[in-house]
Structure formats: structure tokens, C-alpha cells
Design a protein around this nucleic acid. Structure first.
Lengths: 115, 115
DNA sequence: CGGTATCCTTGATGATACTG
DNA sequence: CAGTATCATCAAGGATACCG
């Protein structure tokens, strides 16, 4: 699998777009902003994601320095994912986004589309 | 073509993800945040986009209330796209994103934008 | 438990041609 | 000028099977 290096972008916004790209990465960041989680916990929380796709995206975010992966050498193995410092800053940005979109959605109720 | 209604999302972040979805919508918003632009100007600025894809995305953003489309009944026809009030608020959010990503790209050091 | 390895589907994008 | 109509392409995502 090809993992793009986020840091190779010239344009900051293209970099951001790559980071949150696809159907699952935003959910991963949001979930980990609550607390560190194990692979199976993430898979349960992100209802519908397959192991392959979840692993692919976790690898991309880890490679980009936004999350970190800690292996506990127990039997059976336990792996914990958490946000790095940069990942936590990103989750702050996502809070702003969440606020804006929340307001946007409420304004939407005032709009009447008569069809 | 199917145009999703942004306002139908429950989750604000999914709503935002849908709004900026794909390769071109962020560029459209950023371009229009500078000044209103005509179809051909946008196409020139977003190097590589096809008429079809540009039109599809403009339609989606217009439908979502983020940009507005004004037709001047001249010959040949002139059409101007601009941000709505909600679109301008979104571009403010995108500025925050741009700042964060700029810092991220410089590995955590403060970025100074001297203009 | 936490993944990989394959194969397949699907939808966004791109190329090209055409039009009021 | 500002699109629409078709068709082709390609990578993200999903299904399933398997493994240390």
C-alpha cells in the first residue's frame, strides 16, 4: 500500500485535505481525541469499517505523525493508538469545524426549499 | 447527477466533509474568497479541472447555499459565482485550517506570514 | 487480538464531443 | 461563454479468507 507523506505538500490546505481524506480518518481523530483506543475498540466505534481499511488509515496517520501506535507484548497482543501532540492540535481545529458546521446545520432549518 | 443536500447530515463534521469533498471544492471556495469569479476564470485558476467536474461541484456548492450564481443576460452569456454569507464564514474556518497546516508543515515551528 | 493478502465494486474524476 | 452528454479510468473502499 502506498502511504503519502503529508509533509511533502506545498499547499497547507492540500496537506490538510490529504490528512483527513476519505471516509474514516476524521472519525479516527475524533475518537482518539476522547481517549487512546485499541484496534478493536476503534473498529467497533467506527461502525462498518473493515480491518483492512482501518489498518490502512491508521498506518497513514501514524506515518504522518498524527497518531502513535504502542504495542504491549502480552498474549494475546494489545495495541493502543493515541494522538500525538500534533494530532491533538488537529483535533482542536476540528472542534472549530464542528462548531461552524453545527451553526450551518441549524441555519439550514430556517431555509425552506419549496419543491 | 446526484446532488447531496449538505443539511441532511446529523453529524456536523460529516456535513463539513461532504462540503469540501473531492479534489476541487476547497480550491473553489478559496478562489471565490478572493473575489467573485466567472466560470472561465475559475476553470483557468483551478488548473486541470474539466468543465464537467467544475460544473458538478459548483452546482453542489450552490445547492448547499455556500456559493451563489448570477447570470448576466448578455451575449455571449456571463455567469458570476460568489460566496454567500455562509460561504464566507466557511472560508474563515479554512483560514484557521491553513494556519494549522502551515505550522504542521514546518514541523511545529511558528510560521510567519509576512505580506 | 490485530492485523495481511486478494479480489471485486463503485463513484469521483478525466477525455472528448457537442450546444444554446 | 458556459455549460451538457457520454464514455473511460482509476483508486478508495468493501468482502472474504487467512495468519502469528
Amino acid at each position: 500500500m502506498f502511504v503519502f507523506n503529508f509533509k511533502e505538500f506545498e499547499c497547507p490546505f492540500n496537506c490538510f485535505a490529504e490528512i483527513i481524506k476519505g471516509k474514516w480518518r476524521t472519525g479516527i481523530i475524533l475518537s482518539l481525541s476522547g481517549s487512546p483506543k485499541r484496534f478493536s475498540e476503534l473498529k467497533k466505534e467506527l461502525a462498518g469499517v473493515s480491518s483492512k481499511v482501518l489498518a490502512d488509515n491508521l498506518r497513514a496517520l501514524e506515518n504522518g505523525g498524527l497518531i502513535s501506535r504502542t504495542v504491549f507484548p502480552t498474549v494475546p497482543p494489545a495495541v493502543e493508538y493515541s494522538l500525538t501532540e500534533q494530532g491533538q492540535e488537529l483535533s482542536g481545529i476540528m472542534d472549530s469545524i464542528n462548531n461552524w458546521a453545527g451553526i450551518f446545520l441549524n441555519k439550514g432549518e430556517a431555509v425552506t426549499y419549496t419543491e
